[in-house]
Nucleic acid binder design. Structure first.
Lengths: 153, 153
DNA sequence: CATGAAACATAGCCTTGGCAATACATGATG
DNA sequence: CATCATGTATTGCCAAGGCTATGTTTCATG
């Protein structure tokens, strides 16, 4: 939205509090665009660590989607230089991919640990963390960490 | 994924911990499908409360999208019996829409208040709450409320 | 009461992220 | 070494959620 738009809006009628949510909604849409890529990269890193390799069918099984869906996404991740593929030989993370995986996993772990510390059960904590992690700003993540430090086991 | 699939997967290779994230990812995708509808309904309720009416251009301005985008979404909300429209006369919530708006707003307020209580600044709390609210289970929401009661102002 | 600005409707286009169906490659095994 | 289960590639389809461009209604105002 341009400043001109905002100005004309404010002349037109009293600025409602709701109007200032614009930024929040835009950030939300942006997060939705990248969260799937983060999930993939994080999962691929996990699979390589646990099983030594990440195959399309494994990824598909873990995410609960079909293999063609994974193939399409891997193409996109390749375009973004996050993964490389050797046909019929598995998926590998680039350096950028590894970096994204590690920051993503760290955030995920903090969110899940935070929920557990708050008294949320293991299953709900796992499920909710998966959704929440992509919408947590650095500031909020820091607050979660601070809470964890202040409430040791 | 069927049980048969899961079984064959478990026979094929040792079940990795990652495999049990399936449910989390599926819930996440489900949440993504409905979160936009919730945002719209919540916003429409706000606009009606604040300005007496909800016009497409107001909704568009608040969400940071264009008016045709709003029009298309309103058609979908109409199909779902959440809103009614009187052409050139504004948007109104059905009873179902009002219910959804109120539960959605309550959740939103709790999440935002919780983040504020945790020490997160007002802007980050507002932005993050917008993204987080749709991924918070009843259990986690209850934990947030409990925390708020245990830490009064 | 004519008219022009603003709101609304509509059509066409794009990308993302799902799916099923089908063809091809690989490798274990008889 | 032939075969077949499994993994991978590819194609075509769909819905959601954005956009621009353009036509149509309303309504305030001269």
């Amino acid at each position: 939205m341009t400043n001109k738009d905002v100005d004309s809006a404010r002349r037109g009628k009293p600025a409602t509090p709701a109007e200032f949510q614009v930024e929040a909604f835009q950030k939300c849409r942006e997060a939705r665009r990248t969260e799937l890529m983060e999930d993939y990269v994080e999962l691929i890193d996990d699979l390589i660590a646990q099983a030594g390799e990440a195959r399309q069918t494994d990824i598909a099984r873990c995410l609960g989607v079909t293999q063609p869906t994974v193939a399409k996404m891997l193409k996109r991740l390749g375009d973004e230089r996050l993964v490389t593929q050797r046909p019929y030989r598995g998926v590998f993370l680039t350096e950028d991919g590894k970096r994204l995986a590690s920051t993503s996993r760290r955030r995920h772990e903090i969110v899940e640990a935070f929920l557990r510390k708050l008294g949320v059960g293991p299953e709900a904590a796992r499920n909710d963390a998966e959704g929440i992690e992509h919408h947590v700003s650095v500031e909020t993540l820091t607050a979660f960490e601070h809470f964890l430090r202040k409430n040791p086991d």
